[in-house]
Simulated scan of single mutants.
Amino acid sequence: MSISASAADDSVSAGELSARYDNFVVDLLGSIAYGELSAFERLATDARHSPSLADRAVLGKMAVAEYGHYESMCARLNAIGMDPELAMAPYQRMVDAFHERTRPADWHESLMKAYVVEAITEEFYAAIAKNLDEPTQLAIAAVRTSDEQLAALTALLKKMLAEDPRLSSRLALWGRRMVGEALTQVQRIGAKHSFLVGLRPDGTQEQAAAEVAVIVSALTRNHSRRMSQLGLTA
């Protein structure tokens, strides 16, 4: 829900609380926007290495969707009077470094990275968005990977594992690395830009860290469930 003057106490004015909330929303939307732009670039590049045209089409469609999500975030930032480029700038180095650290060695690892990282980041932002105003909630909800695309990606991974069972151990290990990197990344972003601190008049870094920890626990459980669907150990 959004923050109103009634939420403020004696130590925090309504104006200060509103400004804090607005900064929080801009930070959040900026991080999502740059993440979506980076996902578009990564998927478009990975699609060129697909073993078949059908596989290339699956990743190509996902890349197009990611670019649409990026445009949606930019539209929301423009609607609240914020320059998207300025909102994204604080996240560029951090997100680029993440993708450099997690560069896939081949097509198989590219698919697993998409499967793990997209789900975790989307769930993280969705969990935070529950606390926000309705227009922002709707904007963030619109950048979720569609069920159709997720099903297509899952089918590709299952097909790949069925055709070459030797991939199982390597991709299970790669998946564990991806979830570790992704969870560290969302915690790092949250800590650096004070996510959740701006949502209440008495918000502190410690409270924000505790709430992020609860979210991360849920993300870990959901990841384990998704890996089990592939027949892999998380």
Rank of each mutant, 00 (worst) to 15 (best):
L150P: 00
R48I: 15
A63G: 03
G35E: 08
D83V: 05
H99W: 14
S52T: 11
S38Y: 05
M73V: 05
L86W: 10
D46S: 13
L111Y: 11
A47D: 12
A151W: 03
L150Q: 15
T136W: 01
L43D: 08
K130V: 14
C74L: 00
Q149L: 14
G68I: 03
M62P: 07
T136I: 11
A65L: 12
Y67H: 09
L111F: 01
S110G: 08
F124W: 13
A47S: 14
F40D: 11
V58G: 09
E148M: 14
D133G: 07
A65P: 06
A87P: 08
E118F: 15
A87V: 04
L53V: 09
E41H: 14
Q149D: 15
E134Q: 13
K113H: 07
V143K: 02
D96N: 13
S31H: 03
A89Q: 12
T136F: 05
R48T: 15
S110N: 04
Q92F: 01
E85F: 11
H99P: 01
V95Y: 00
E41M: 11
M62V: 01
E123C: 05
A114W: 00
A44W: 05
L132Y: 09
G30Y: 01
A63V: 06
M94V: 15
Q92G: 00
A65C: 09
T102Y: 10
Y70S: 00
R56D: 03
E148Y: 14
L111H: 00
E41K: 04
K113G: 04
N131D: 15
S110Q: 00
A33S: 08
R101Y: 00
A139H: 10
P135E: 08
L150S: 15
A151S: 09
A129R: 14
E100Q: 08
R76K: 13
R48P: 01
Q149C: 03
D133N: 08
G30C: 02
Y34R: 09
A141T: 12
A114M: 10
I32L: 07
F124Y: 14
S31R: 02
K61S: 15
A44K: 07
R48A: 15
G60V: 06
M82L: 01
G60L: 06
Y115S: 00
A44R: 06
R42S: 13
E66T: 05
T121V: 15
A97P: 07
D55N: 13
N131K: 14
F124N: 10
A114H: 02
P135A: 11
P90L: 08
E36H: 04
L59V: 03
K130Q: 14
P51E: 07
C74K: 05
A44F: 02
A33C: 02
M82Q: 12
R103D: 12
A151Y: 06
I32Q: 01
R93Y: 03
G60M: 12
H69G: 04
D96G: 11
R56K: 11
D96F: 06
Q92H: 08
D83F: 00
D147A: 15
D55A: 07
N78P: 00
A63F: 07
P135D: 08
M82C: 12
E66F: 11
S146D: 14
H108E: 13
T102G: 07
Q149W: 07
Y70C: 02
G68L: 10
F40I: 12
A57I: 11
P51T: 03
S110W: 00
A75Y: 07
Q137M: 13
W107S: 06
L132R: 07
